[in-house]
Write a protein that binds this DNA or RNA. Sequence first.
DNA 1: ATTAGTTACGCATATCGTAACGATG
DNA 2: CATCGTTACGATATGCGTAACTAAT
Lengths: 286, 286
Amino acid sequence: MLNLLEMEQLAAFAECGTLSKAAEKLNVSQPTITRTMQHLEDEFGVPLFQRTKNHIALNETGMRAVEHAQKILKAAEDAVEDVRLFDRSLHTITVSSCAPAPLWHLLPELSDAFPGMTMSSSVKNNAAVLDDLRSGACLLAVLPDHVLSSHISEEDYCCIPFMKENLSVCVPPFHALAEYDDISFAELNGYNFLLGTRLGFWDEMCREKMPASRFLVQTDQFTMEEVIRESSLPCFVTDAVSYDRDIYRDRIVIPITDQEAKIIFHAVFDRNNKKYADVFRRLFRV
Amino acid sequence: MLNLLEMEQLAAFAECGTLSKAAEKLNVSQPTITRTMQHLEDEFGVPLFQRTKNHIALNETGMRAVEHAQKILKAAEDAVEDVRLFDRSLHTITVSSCAPAPLWHLLPELSDAFPGMTMSSSVKNNAAVLDDLRSGACLLAVLPDHVLSSHISEEDYCCIPFMKENLSVCVPPFHALAEYDDISFAELNGYNFLLGTRLGFWDEMCREKMPASRFLVQTDQFTMEEVIRESSLPCFVTDAVSYDRDIYRDRIVIPITDQEAKIIFHAVFDRNNKKYADVFRRLFRV
DNA sequence: ATTAGTTACGCATATCGTAACGATG
DNA sequence: CATCGTTACGATATGCGTAACTAAT
């Protein structure tokens, strides 16, 4: 029977052109390669090389054998890779969320519900979350109400509302906006805002609703908080974070009136997933 | 690195269900299989089995690994098979002919032209010969003139006429047909004939041209000759065999007048075959 | 008591590297 | 004479089978 180590040496020889180079590449002695090539000819039962006294090269048949060797080696590598990933998937709950806040609730609950399993979560925009759900890249998706009806079939997927989040702007008392009791995106459009990163669909929505505004993106949380404290630039908060935190103490929170600022997050998962559908249903108390 | 022998043992275990059965199947001791399964788990780096004290079974990951193992094993087997066939093809001139007679001329000439190579020839009906030519199953095809124009593109294939064969019927002197100087298929239609086997397109043609006739097929050459000698049943001969052979000495040969009985055989081969096209052209003196 | 799987031990063989050799440009 | 491939030889490692052990039915 063929031998993957020998296949590898054959492929290396094809790549390097001489036995010595191949030996060096694979950190074995050169006679080892000689022997392997002889053995391979035995295995295949046909000549694979053109030999002269001090030269050896693949013949036409040999090249054909090399192609097979490469294919088989790749299959073997892929097999290990795939089996490892599969094993990992058996011990991992993957969640793709359109916003960060739902994960703060969800991940601890999932950890309790699936003791011993790894949680793997990511925050993406709605389209990317939908892709993950459809491709199976995530077991559980978190999506806002307004994308469900248009993009998710109730037949295939179970959608359970489990959390609300309402967006507000947050300004210092002396700011021009501070006098509003509530406000709309239309009225906010044109102001510039501080904005965090990894906000999922919020990022996209803000840019759509306030196209005239500029968003001053802060990638570092500490920097963000310092700038909020020390500047009068408006920023966003939601009721998913505590308003009374230190940094917001001196600011005024103004709810946004648009429907799009009042999000109901849904947990979405494959109805037919035998392993998880029931547990998810129980988890969300339905 | 994975090992094909171990893959084979894994596949055998999957098939047999117990280590002992797998060991028996592969003619190795049972501890060998135990060790291999342990080693495989090391290789993959993840658990592949559910073990109790005296039972072992594949887990979900293990089944996945088995699928890969089977795929890889098949690829390895196919590789050897393919490389051997390829090597053989390098040393074999394959000819598919629509009739036996052209081969009598062709094969000796090819043997001379390609010393050291093996000749592999077969006689098939026209459609099968065309298939062989198109699929590359033969390097050289022998086909009658009338199929060329309709089925062969001059752009891709080189067609060279190299031999004629004319069909006659052959009857004893006292037979009803013996008075004809020549004769047509229409006139022959309804008579029953002795017929050999492996006649290529001749067989098909006879049955088409003389649908009312019955053909008494003789698979054995010796039997055929005895029946010709001892019966008055008509049979066929062509000018490619010597009429004056012993068995025909007492019979009368009547040429068939139809155009379809006067065949011009063409050698047909791939114009773009770098290795053989030129030699074939020279061989047929074009 | 039989069947299944794992572990331990010792031997046979396979495999590798070093060294010596032969050929070529 | 430097490079490349092959052959020979000895050390080591690998892999196998036998046998002994444990657990379960």
